[in-house]
């Protein structure tokens, strides 16, 4: 477990939003599992931190929730992306791309110098 990377602060919500966008309405457990799968089990989502993050997104109006029934007939709370959430996701994705671009350029440049 210790080799797995922790989810960086702030990126969890981006991942949650992206997951819901790709998968459509999904419950908390599903979101967590999906993130782990996508990362090729490289990431370890602390399930406990997921629910406060979901609540935060809901409070911000990016997602909304509704009780539903899972494929194996379990009651579960499903989260769906709102219009604001979609915009938020676009913005955060853009920001992320920009940040990583800068960081990688930075790393590239320092290699040149060395």
């Amino acid at each position: 477990m210790s080799e797995k990377a922790d989810v960086w602060q702030g990126t969890l919500s981006l991942m949650v939003l992206k997951t819901i966008e790709t998968m459509g309405p999904l419950h908390g457990y599903g979101i967590a599992r999906r993130i782990e799968q996508i990362s090729g089990n490289q990431l370890c989502v602390n399930y406990g931190t997921l629910y406060p993050a979901l609540l935060k997104l809901e409070q911000e109006g990016s997602i909304e929730s509704e009780w539903g029934v899972s494929e194996n007939n379990r009651k579960a709370k499903y989260y769906r992306l709102t219009r604001a959430g979609r915009k938020q996701l676009e913005k955060e994705a853009r920001d992320w791309a920009q940040t990583t671009a800068i960081v990688s350029r930075f790393l590239g440049a320092s290699e040149d110098l060395a």
Partner: peptide, 13 residues
């Protein structure tokens, strides 16, 4: 309820 449901789903898996 939500946590209970989460645990149930996890247990099922």
């Amino acid at each position: 309820d939500e946590i209970e449901s989460h645990i149930q789903l996890h247990i099922d898996d």
